[in-house]
Write a protein that binds this DNA or RNA. Structure first.
Lengths: 212, 212, 212, 212
DNA sequence: CATGAATGAGAATTCATTCAT
DNA sequence: TATGAATGAATTCTCATTCAT
């Protein structure tokens, strides 16, 4: 199913890699990144050494899990780009990202870190296009910039982190409200959006040291 | 060496408690909850033992710091209640809570936990009144409920956690957008708000185990 | 007995520090630096945490043990300086250093590392004086330099590392031979001695990575 | 896939063995025995499994590398034996052993261990003859015994271990000094040499456990 | 046979909490 | 009562060795 870069892994190794990734994802979702590698290994049914063979650092394991989520988001962005109605495409995109963030709540603290990543840049580029097209139809107010979209994702994170286990749809209503503001507002916004440079730095530097 | 009367002793003890709280607040704001008790003790100019005498658990120390922030939020709510214009009062309140969350970014993961707390109930009650009054003037749409306000606070947390160090005003623009949605939106929201029971559980159960 | 720098330790703490140092010295002598901190702690009758409280790094623990040996060598150098006969003083000094190296064979791989150390500089200065005085009396050949003395110490290390457990006096005979060469030789030496700069770098850089 | 006759198989195996030995030698020389088997396997262009097939233990791999160095030393001893001048032969031998020890500095901790080895016995026998012949010409003092020669090698190890990377010729000057002592000294040595039995035990027991 | 994946004991280090001084 | 010393479980990561493919 999955292909792992240029050098192919043996089938058993690839299966183990998947088991580890899956166990890590589940563990992070349930316990957060503080969970020990040993627990992840146990959950995957392998020894710690095996985890470290595939992911030489806890950091890299986290990154691998996060990368999968990002890839899903990128795919969602692409799918939304194909939508005939730009506005509906944008809306769909926002909800899909919300859903993906919800489904991988354990990854949120790291989801937008590591700005050098190619996938993140893809996502940004597609998002800009989606926004521009929607603005061109007049259905989204003109003073909204891409950085506002990024901020919406971060805000959804805040909601999801709080509500995920108890009110799984809470983020949807919040996104409703935000979308309404994006589409109807006509009072100029009092505060400036993030500059692209700031957004860049946020992605690079934000979040507390995530693992000890 | 010197002997103190019980009153003096109590005063000393209270001073220590304050020094510790202050040091903890500053430490959490700068480093987050991961900081060690030893560092807090040093910053307070006392030994670890003294910290543990006042706060038998790191958990309790965190709670005490969080409670102070909550008290500030309660005060902000009260102040906003006194505003002649209900709408302006609500707006001011939202921005003040935003600012307080920003200033105590290190406490965010725990800020709304611990629902049994009297202060949280006060905040909720006052918030409900503020919202109701603003809705009564017609400036805030009627389908907004208190739980939406709570959700706004959580969403600001998400933004602040990401942007605090890099774009200290980012949350303000996000709040602009949200307020516009609250005040002007006239399309019915597609998703239901949190029920009060859900909001209650969110406060009680949300957030990851904060300390290892 | 021992004084531990400016801030005094509590008596129990100081005792523990001594116990740890003693256990470390014994452990290193028996097992080398590869021994685990846990074993040292056990031998000292304390927990690992206690070892790390006094010596935040294994490296620092090793350094502390080594420093004690260096101090003894410095004292030996000073004592030898007071000898009325410069030649006998030098001889005595060489044998004392040999004995100290023998008695702390476990420290040899690290004994002369860390060239910035004040004690090492003292030792070097005193050694130079001892040599110069002995040469002034004509009993030591003039083309010998301080770096040759350092090299003698290193060569004794090689002998001691091999023979310590089996032939505890082997290094003495080797030193006999070397001293004879220093005192009687009149054929010019074919190879140049280390330059002081080289000797400096040796002290700074020599030895393989000692701990894993 | 291809089928080989047994001869070809053996040749392949031998080639592998040589590649591994060569890689191990180079690795030990550069990094010491602490280097991992995986790195050696990679350098040899084979898998770890293959290394373990040829050398069931890291210990045995080390021994094999050391044996090669010993063989070189034996050859040097033989070559020196053929020298017309016994004294020059001995001198040449000492310098050659010094050079070999320098070139295989990574092997020093194990070079003289493993006394049961036939090659070591050869070396010893030839060395004794060399020494006896040189003493017969009167150019080497009579109270020098074979064990003093062994001790010289160990002492060179000490010098080389310290200076190899920084002052590659340091050991030569040290050997100069020692040779002068051997050839000119006429004051009786104060300490007895190693007995042959001690020297034997040194070879068998000396040196720390080399691998963890 | 060769490969390299898997294993798991062990090593250094941290930190919340307890307790002797 | 204040202090900070002691504790030890837990965490990340390494590496010699075994074994399925």
């Amino acid at each position: 199913m999955t292909s792992y870069g240029s050098r192919a892994l043996r089938r058993d190794a690839a299966e183990n890699r998947d088991k580890i990734l899956e166990a890590a994802r589940a563990s992070f979702d349930e316990e957060g990144f503080e969970i020990g590698i040993e627990a992840i290994a146990q959950r995957a049914g392998v020894g710690v050494g095996t985890v470290y063979r595939r992911f030489p650092t806890k950091e890299l394991l986290i990154a691998a899990v996060v990368d999968e989520v990002l890839a899903a988001i990128r795919d969602a962005a692409l799918a939304a780009s194909g939508h005939e109605s730009a506005t509906e495409g944008l809306t769909e995109y926002l909800f899909t990202v919300g859903r993906l963030q919800f489904e991988h709540a354990g990854c949120l603290p790291r989801l937008w870190n590591g700005a050098d990543d190619a996938v993140r840049r893809e996502i940004e580029a597609i998002s800009r296009q989606l926004l521009a097209k929607a603005q061109a139809t007049g259905s989204v107010r003109g003073d909204v910039v891409y950085e506002d979209i990024a901020t919406i994702f971060w805000s959804l994170q805040g909601v999801i982190e709080r509500t995920a286990t108890v009110a799984p749809d809470a983020w949807k209503r919040h996104l409703d409200i935000l979308i309404q503001a994006l589409t109807q507002g006509d009072i100029p916004l009092a505060h400036a959006p993030l500059t692209p440079q700031q957004a860049e730095r946020v992605k690079r530097e934000s979040g507390r040291g995530v693992i000890s």
